[in-house]
Design a protein around this nucleic acid. Structure first.
Lengths: 337, 337
DNA sequence: TTGTACGCGTTATCAT
DNA sequence: ATGATAACGCGTACAA
């Protein structure tokens, strides 16, 4: 691999001059700069970002730690984040936590060791000493989608409580009173808030969720399918399902359809996230929508802002994106039981 | 940030001894090693992977360059790759090329500058001097999903020609003779081979594809939708659609359903990839299936093998995964026109 | 323009 | 056997 010193030898300059020339420093006269750059090109020189990072103390890499890249919601976040990051000369290091707090901690440690410049984090929000350390050290960090409960920290996402409220309210407005909740686990603050939103809406109609009416699994189609299957096999009667996310909702619909239940005539289903599949004909899932790609972009924007801010500590940024109820064909008036 | 020298000061050792101790070098006696490690822990020392990478000449990072992370096919590849990579202590740097050859080249350059240890690449396979250089320099690289046409290079994927053949043969076996193809662009070798497979099967029935019967767009639902809409508005009669991938197929089905066409009674649709959505009730897409997560894992496995192989050049690895026709409800006997 | 210290850790060589 | 010294990897930045 050709280094800056090899070039220096070729052009009869000190290697520090070569470095300056390559960085377009005006202290090196223009024609020399051109000569150096030409020779560098000719020799196939490529900067060593590693060495550069060491001395500059910044790697121009961003870590994005999130539960599951296969979940389209997160894939969209990444897409938005990656696009802006690349535009700004940054690369994204992707880490799956699989909703596991320990893995989250391990990934945090690893990316810190790698001296990445900052972290985007969709956290499980469980007690996590590594995360505490990161926060206390004020490493550049942005919570994405799910806020950190107490700390003053950068955040971009939605008002999950309000989103949950919107979803439940929609079912209630359609006359549903027998509502069950099919969830993943409560392993993020966003989910907890979403659930609180459900409960607030239900409470307005004096409905208290029975624990039997909340079935938890994980955030996947297969989990939604399994959960609804067990529920259908009990004698619990219900007219609507609140699913924690769209994947679960789709699994629920798969299960209901398999059991010959008509959606929305017999049972209404509402999801959360508005992933692309929700809009497919044949799925037509009513859900809560938000701009996921922008969420990813904003996350990077906040992070870069923090990286470039001069006086520490920087202002804490908090971006709350809009969300809308998107009514499709999976919800309808409540059937009289 | 506490460095190795800070520890050295605390434990009254030279910093090189501390380094040796932390790396469990037997030249440092066991009790000293323990003492050092304890102190390091106590001081909250974290290795600086950056500095380490510089001197070791390996970063323990892998670049994964691919067209579109939002396409579930690629998301699954990443999932598999990331899991194994992390297991082995590596991190994955994700780069979207958006099917753009220039972006591919830029990303290649960038990850090389970053001194990542190796590259996983889903290439557009267009002429690309940067890629040529990477190959001629024998940087560790694995072509994933789409092989490099000529070069001897590592590859993991499927036999795309055969896959295409399977898909087309299925339609032909069902009696379809009026078949149209809805594609993305021919911007990867895998796609070209897939298309060749289509043509081989069709040829066996003496069917030659008219250029009007091949509509190209991109690999998205909306593109499939648009393509089929324009086709439906012509007076071209057909009984089956070969879609380049599942997303396109789903878009096609959306469009057909919107036009009141019954699938598969009026028109059959077959996709490619078997993404999760293909299995959703209400979609039920017949498609060609393969183990995407394993493809990602194998890619990393090959790459790590190359990184650890002693005598260069290493053997070239070539893993071809099975693929199966998964028959669901989007294909049926051909309607008599 | 140039020489040189520096960032941080690894390792070959040298000293005890 | 243990541990210290110093060169090294590559590029940046300040003093000369």
């Amino acid at each position: 691999m050709v280094t800056i010193k090899d070039i220096a030898r070729e052009v009869n300059l000190s290697y520090s001059s070569v470095s300056l020339a390559l960085n377009e420093d005006p202290r090196i006269k223009k024609e020399t700069r051109e000569r150096v750059k030409l020779k560098a090109e000719e020799m196939g020189y490529q900067r060593n970002a590693q060495a550069r990072a060491l001395v500059m103390n910044k790697s121009e890499m961003i870590g994005f730690i999130l539960p599951d890249i296969e979940n389209p919601f997160f894939a969209s976040l990444i897409r938005g984040a990656e696009a802006l990051a690349f535009e700004k000369g940054y690369n994204l290091v992707i880490c799956n936590t699989n909703w596991d707090n320990e893995l989250e901690a391990k990934h945090l440690n690893l990316v810190i060791e790698r001296k990445i410049d900052g972290i985007l984090l969709v956290s499980c929000n469980e007690p996590n000493p590594t995360l505490e350390k990161v926060l206390s050290l004020h490493l550049p960090l942005v919570f994405v989608s799910s806020p950190y409960p107490e700390a003053e920290a950068n955040f971009v996402g939605t008002d999950s409580e309000h989103g949950g409220y919107l979803a439940a309210k929609h079912l209630l407005d359609l006359g549903h009173r027998e509502i069950v909740v099919i969830g993943g686990q409560f392993n993020s603050e966003a989910i907890i808030q979403r659930f609180n939103g459900y409960k607030r809406a239900l409470k307005e109609y004096n409905i208290i969720l029975n624990t039997d009416d909340v079935i938890l699994g994980d955030f996947s189609v297969s989990s939604g399918y399994k959960s609804i299957k067990t529920l259908v096999n009990t004698n619990r009667k219900f007219t609507a399902v609140l699913a924690f996310d769209d994947l679960i909702a789709i699994g629920v619909m798969n299960g209901l359809k398999e059991s010959g239940i008509i959606i929305p005539d017999d049972i209404s289903v509402i999801g959360f996230d508005n992933i692309e599949a929700a809009s497919f004909r044949g799925i037509d899932l009513t859900t809560i929508s938000m701009d996921k790609s922008s969420m990813g972009r904003f996350a990077v924007e906040i992070l870069l802002g923090e990286l470039n801010c001069k006086q520490k500590p920087c202002d804490i940024k908090n971006i709350v994106l809009d969300q809308d109820l998107v009514i499709r064909n999976s919800t309808g008036p409540a059937k009289v039981l």
